[in-house]
Design a binder for these strands. Sequence first.
DNA 1: GCACTCTTGCACGCTGCAGTGCAATACTCC
DNA 2: GGAGTATTGCACTGCAGCGTGCAAGAGTGC
Lengths: 234, 234
Amino acid sequence: MPTDDDGALKTELPTSAGTDPRVVRSRAALLDAATRHFLEHGYLGTNLDDVARRAGVAKRTIYNVIGDKQALFRAVLAEAMDTAEHYSSEVAANLGGSTDVRAELHDAALQLARAVLGGRVVPLRRLLVAEAHRFPELADEYYRRAPDQVMRSLADALQRYDQRRQLQIEDPVRAGEQLAFLILGASLDRAMFLPADTHEDPALVDERARAGVEVFLRAHQPSEHGTNRRRADG
Amino acid sequence: MPTDDDGALKTELPTSAGTDPRVVRSRAALLDAATRHFLEHGYLGTNLDDVARRAGVAKRTIYNVIGDKQALFRAVLAEAMDTAEHYSSEVAANLGGSTDVRAELHDAALQLARAVLGGRVVPLRRLLVAEAHRFPELADEYYRRAPDQVMRSLADALQRYDQRRQLQIEDPVRAGEQLAFLILGASLDRAMFLPADTHEDPALVDERARAGVEVFLRAHQPSEHGTNRRRADG
DNA sequence: GCACTCTTGCACGCTGCAGTGCAATACTCC
DNA sequence: GGAGTATTGCACTGCAGCGTGCAAGAGTGC
């Protein structure tokens, strides 16, 4: 699995096919500025004159290079979702390698909590939730590519732990959901409602993540005598 | 604490002080229509001509009776928050009376999950999250009056269980958060991203709530020998 | 250096929408 | 039934913002 250190690179393969460097530059500056504006003010609250000014580009260039407001919005979100998916998939990479379940889950939990609460994930979620009625397919796509993917990765890892008798997991998918929300449910929900500059103490986010893992482990400790009283699915 | 059965009554004490029935009628029709529009289209996406038409009222009446667009928005949210707070406080009412912890928590969990996933809570949360930057004090107020209140009620109940040695709870506040998100974290998060008409199967929501309570109980079962290795508060 | 392409600046049309003014009308209360 | 008050309809102002047209200028690749 490729773990490239160069975090700055963007997936420009399809977009920069027309290789005139002026187009590439304009497009990059526009996406950057538009991302900021859309994340901060929403779709309707963003106006293209401001975006163009912030990008250091003529408004006309938006229409030359990208298209209308909807196209710009979709381009911004395509890029943001690629990034989100990339970080989400990294969570899976660190799971299942070690035999120390507790350590592994704690590492993953902290990584996850910091990624979600630290970067642009919260504004991105705000934006998608806000525009879910206007762009339902985008909200749906994000959900599948980011949170759902993380939960599926957790479910896979939990299933492996169960098979190795390291944890007792009846329903891995359900357990994956529960673990995810034990780790960052409260932190994330709170962050969605509070203004971006009122950042909660990161130490508290970490602590919630750790505590969530601990609760999960306590609930899924394998029974010492090997008599797993598993019931049929309810 | 007063537990009035008349769920239909609204707090009209300050608003219907000017008792002309025409004003009361207009106000009610306007709030109803405006609630629908704001919940569905957001603040900027709502236009007052439509609201007036839907309310069966002249646009001018909005300005006579309530004020400008911001005032209308605040009035809508004040009412919605009162309702949300009311339902939230009902969760507390059913906690702590019985000695059957499992039954009590299951009841509360189902009640909570159905209230949050069933009614207008999800659209309301969408709206508040979307406008958190424009009306930060409203998002904050909602968070305190609804989700935070529910979590505090759960924390109180859990602390009482702990004192009666029915559960082993080290940090009631943290445990309250965890229980809340075990019950409805996944259902709620999913609902926020999917369009309103794509309702998830209510049976699945119920099942998640039940499973969440079960996991919580397993993690907090009091140790059989009474040797509670409690550590000092962190 | 030259042909080619993209960007720029600016003006413009157009639409949607918040908010106002006013005179006619309907309602309410006594 | 009459005085007082709220509502109505409608026209109107003002403005923000999307999207376009065009001709001049700047950058690009060879």
